[in-house]
């Protein structure tokens, strides 16, 4: 097959013979550039997808600021900040992994991918702790929002949350909180699956200076997940 194409385009002498370059690309570089542009277009659809929820947030916060001021006190700022740092470290190890792939450092690539996976797991673990707290307190979304007595009292900041101060429609906050963090958490889980796939391929020695596209574009996806959390954290945890 490739020989036939070679004979057609033989006079151009441009065709790559590398095994990972598909026959409709001129070179590994052109294939890489196409994949990267395609990934950016996908990331744009992700941004627009999340922006629907950010829009809901903006509308409800501007209409009911008192709900957000009150309800955010149920969130633990310390855990949120810790999760932000965990995700930043995972982004760092991911960016480092891309560098390792480009330089053909197989062992370092596998270490950094593993570290990224560990950070992602830590993030989900902390998230699970926060979620279970919400369920214990009955502070969940929509009609299921029935805060128990144990939900009130001292807050994480050392303030006091009183039941009689609770504004109407407080469930709005938790509907938005669970929708945003839930969709984000789903992206983290998908990212973990992708990084695991990279790890298996890295172990086989697939990646090197001529072929690192999968590591690069999964990296882009992972950084976008970090980017969205960078905005979610102050919007949900740092309201005042």
């Amino acid at each position: 097959m490739s020989q036939a194409i070679d004979s057609i385009h033989g006079d151009q002498g441009q065709l790559s013979h590398e095994p990972h370059v598909a026959h409709h690309f001129e070179s590994a570089e052109q294939q890489y550039d196409s994949a990267k542009l395609g990934m950016w277009v996908f990331l744009v659809t992700e941004i627009l997808f999340f922006s629907g929820l950010f829009c809901v947030y903006a509308v409800y916060r501007s209409l009911h600021p008192e709900v957000f001021l009150y309800a955010h006190q149920w969130l633990d700022k310390g855990l949120g900040a810790l999760n932000t740092v965990v995700l930043i470290i995972s982004s760092f190890t991911m960016a480092w992994a891309v560098r390792n792939a480009q330089l053909g450092q197989k062992k370092a690539l596998m270490i950094n991918l593993t570290l990224t996976l560990v950070c992602a797991g830590t993030f989900m673990g902390i998230k699970a702790k926060e979620y279970s707290q919400k369920f214990e307190h009955g502070t969940t979304w929509g009609a299921s929002f029935h805060p128990h007595d144990n939900a009130f009292g001292e807050t994480h900041d050392g303030g006091e949350l009183k039941k009689e101060d609770m504004p109407p429609n407080t469930q709005l906050f938790f509907s938005i909180y669970f929708a945003l963090t839930g969709l984000h958490g789903l992206h983290v889980l998908i990212g973990m699956g992708l990084i695991l796939w990279l790890l298996v391929r890295a172990a086989k020695g697939t990646f090197g200076p001529e072929y690192f596209t999968p590591v690069d574009i999964v990296g882009l996806y992972w950084h976008l997940v970090d980017l969205i959390w960078i905005f979610l954290f102050p919007l949900l945890y740092l309201i005042h």
Binding site: A28, E29, A81, I88, S91, V98, R99, Q102, L103
Partner: peptide, 22 residues
């Protein structure tokens, strides 16, 4: 080739700046 490895100094610097800003 066409790979552009980001220097380690930049990676570490950016990570430190991100944590500081957090």
């Amino acid at each position: 080739g066409f790979a552009h490895p980001v220097p380690m100094k930049i990676l570490v610097g950016v990570a430190a700046a991100l944590i500081a800003l957090t």
